[in-house]
Write a protein that binds this DNA or RNA. Structure first.
Lengths: 194, 194
DNA sequence: ATAAACATACCGACCAGTCGGTATGTTTAT
DNA sequence: ATAAACATACCGACTGGTCGGTATGTTTAT
């Protein structure tokens, strides 16, 4: 592979960008900072990525794809079991990406203001919503969940997850968020399950 | 005694700052922009506020105080009734502050990165958490709520609220958020109530 | 040789904050 | 009463510096 060196610089720039964005945020992290952290010149940066926004978008796509994979691999016997199992995966997610969580917020904020970013976010976001809605429908069909509007139930689940993550970002040592996540889902399931 | 003209300028700057911050965000909204929108010079701005951050902080304090007042005035007969009543107040909150909601996110993000802002946010935030925990304790005492860890229950409630607001920010026309908020709390109450 | 990959130097725009100065009250002394 | 002395409120040009992006030169691999 002739582009091996090239490929390595690409990922080094990306990794550096993740770190800088996570620490300082999108605006405060300058292209110069990212290059310095990557041990690379600005020329290299702009050779691989056309703009600063482009690298941000690339980062976000990667993140969204990662969530997608994680969600697909959690299916269990019954729907309530699946949902609880998903929350059991949360500790790993938190541990693996704790320092990157502020970036999640950054994505959200940029999406709420930038048309381009919004379009990139909204599709997978609605996809997750739909996945959960289907899950709830299945649960109703198999009799493990009370008859409920699946859309609303899905939104509750997503809201709870988003809210937990957000609080984890703001106040990581304010609570045991893994435990809280598990027990929260348990309470929710009490409200949903038959 | 401060002069009355002065006071008017202060509020005009504050109002303009709210609008600019909401539209462009903290970084993108320049002091020049805010002054232009307020019909005031930069000199006036820096006469009344020492830094750009100071005005942001002032704005946030006002917001937090507003929420505080709204929450205190919702007490009903039983705890579940109180909680449901609170969600009924949500439509008003949404309608009154819809365009300012991105600022809420901005507050959160800044707080996660800036020590000063964080300290200003974390105290009232923990206060809300405590208020809800007390509410749940009362509910358990009066027998309307299952025995539950009040802290966890409070975190669930706050998470759900935060998550709903966040989704409302991202995708205002993606759902009927008032309705979703009400039904969400209903589902949660099913899980909590006896 | 030559094209891809990277480095360096630089440009124009912008921005938070400053500063000298002005105008509009308010108090004080006569 | 009123002019001088002072205080408050405001103006807008300017500074020092940063940043995203570009133009152009140099190295590396084939």
């Amino acid at each position: 592979m002739p582009q091996q060196r090239s490929e390595e610089t690409r990922t080094r720039i990306l990794d550096a960008a993740v770190r800088r964005f996570a620490i300082s945020g999108y605006d405060a992290a300058s292209v110069g900072d990212i290059c310095a952290e990557a041990g690379v010149s600005k020329g290299a940066f702009y050779y691989h990525y056309p703009t600063k926004q482009a690298i941000f978008l690339a980062l976000m796509q990667g993140w969204l794809a990662m969530i997608d994979i994680g969600m697909g691999a959690a299916r269990k016997d019954t729907v309530p079991e699946t949902l609880v199992h998903m929350t059991n995966l949360l500790p790993g997610v938190f541990a693996a990406a704790e320092d990157r969580l502020p970036m999640f917020l950054e994505f959200w904020l940029q999406a709420s203001r930038d048309e381009k970013v919004w379009k990139a976010v909204i599709a997978p976001y609605r996809h997750y919503q739909e996945v959960f809605a289907r899950l709830v429908e299945d649960g109703i069909a198999e009799g493990s969940i009370k008859p409920t509007d699946p859309q609303v139930a899905a939104q509750v689940i997503v809201s709870l997850a988003v809210g937990l993550v957000l609080q984890g970002v703001l106040d990581p040592r304010g609570a045991d968020w893994e435990k809280t996540a598990r027990e929260s889902m348990q309470i929710l399931m009490n409200g949903l399950a038959k």
